[in-house]
Design a protein around this nucleic acid. Structure first.
Lengths: 259, 259
DNA sequence: ATGTCTTTGTGAACGCGTGCACAAAGATGG
DNA sequence: CCATCTTTGTGCACGCGTTCACAAAGACAT
């Protein structure tokens, strides 16, 4: 759903539905937790509850991977962890670069989930010369002049963009030109990439706006049945054409400091 | 898709499909950019290109809001900005609390996109006493002991959780008990909430794993037709039950420092 | 006023994802 | 070896979302 490409060819890769792929990491996390508690097997019912999904859906998802369960018993936790890891490509080592080491970039660099699952932060890159050499999460930041060389020397195919919105597309272009074929974009912009390159987007502002929509709906349903609703400071309605002036100083401020 | 509730009642709220709601912020961003450039009208084709979607989809989306376009001309930018803002509830003032002021929490607090669109960071909350009083993004961090009072005093209905995984559910419970009905969760955990509370999840690790899947598939298709693929350091295959030991020190490390 | 041209709004078909419900498969006990 | 019980794997139906394709609507020129 968030592949970002305008013309996604319904990538039912080797028969595994996109929706299923999106849930595999969820299952993997639940299974890893069980594995740590040395639980040998789980039923689809239990695992589904742990992952927060329907048990029928889970069984169907697993059926795309093959028949890894035992009827009357359930699934072997260790075996399933391995199969899902392999399916997701996590048995490989994926070097990743993070471009734009502001607040968010630093948070990502410090994110433990990277290292623990086949991902390795190969380099941190920022356009600010003052950042160069400064260690973040134990890794020295490199200047973006060296971006292409870094990509090629490390065989990087996955890039994370955490720059301001304005810098995102140029950075994206350089990443792609240097050989990156998968991009995780945190900048609030639509990225244009050539075919064959995957883009996934994470947008904090959008998530909040969706929440606000539902929140407003809730408040509307309970309308004046309680006084404890949200601070209903409804702004005055603009007269058909004067809305954007008070919309904010800038369309969408980047999630990070200038890179 | 990420509402989080196990049993989502297909919330076709007032006839607006969930998928459409998820795209409205995208349109709004593109429209705001046009508005800043003082563009008076746009066609569905132009706007769709800017938002990265199909033009027919865009028109259908707008049709759920009403007939705001003029045939032969297009849509009035300012008017549409207002209509979408109103539909999303962004003409209201939404006080938001961020719980867990680690790297990620700080990045969120500094995120300009919050303030610019009806969202106001009402408070930053952390469990670490050493953080209390320390200003982050110009706002002093408050201790989580005061969580309930902060929520109620500010009429907060939207909470952002950026704590470690272990702390997320307890924090969530306290937020809900204090009156929060919408939660944006950055912790890598499935949150359980009562009916009527919306949860949206943002999970960096999952996004990366989905990218890795597609990346692996690409590499598999080009299999040994080039040598420049990803660093294909395929780990040795475990003998059916020994996978989780090298899976990483901890199931899923929180995105932030302990709160 | 009339015709042409552009662009919207939407009816209809299609495909994907979800969930039910059940048969098949294997474990387990006697 | 047979009966019973549990749990998987899946056929099927349904609903949502996407896309095509076109008629209706308005602008604009003559």
């Amino acid at each position: 759903m968030a592949t970002g490409r305008t013309h996604r060819p319904a990538t039912r890769s080797r028969g595994i539905p996109e929706a299923t792929v999106a849930r595999l990491p969820l299952y993997l996390r639940a299974l890893t937790a069980l594995s740590e508690r040395s639980v040998p097997t789980v039923s689809s019912e239990e695992l589904a509850a742990a992952a927060g999904v329907n048990s029928a859906k889970l069984r169907k998802d697993f059926s795309y991977l093959g028949s890894y369960g035992t009827r009357g018993v359930g699934y072997d936790v260790e075996y399933l962890v391995y199969q899902i890891s392999r399916e997701l490509g996590l048995t490989q080592d994926w070097p990743v670069v993070i471009v734009g080491i502001g607040n968010l970039g630093a948070a990502l660099a410090n994110y433990g989930g990277f290292a623990s699952r086949g991902f390795r932060v190969a380099a941190l890159i920022d356009a600010d010369p003052a950042m160069a050499g400064k260690p973040v999460a134990g890794i020295p930041v490199q200047h973006s002049d060296n971006l292409e060389k870094i990509i090629q020397d490390n065989g990087v195919s996955i890039g994370v963009i955490a720059t301001p919105a304005g810098a995102a597309q140029p950075v994206c272009d350089r990443l792609v030109a240097a050989g990156v074929t998968s991009i995780l974009n945190f900048a609030p912009t639509v990225l244009t990439v050539p075919d064959g390159v995957d883009v996934r987007k994470v947008d904090l502002s959008i998530e909040l706006q969706i929440l606000a929509f539902h929140e407003q709906r809730k408040a509307g349903e309970d309308a004046h049945t309680d006084g404890t609703g949200p601070a209903a400071v409804t702004r005055e309605e603009p007269t058909e054409a004067a809305a954007s002036a008070d919309q904010g100083p800038d369309g969408d401020v980047p999630a990070v400091m200038p890179a």
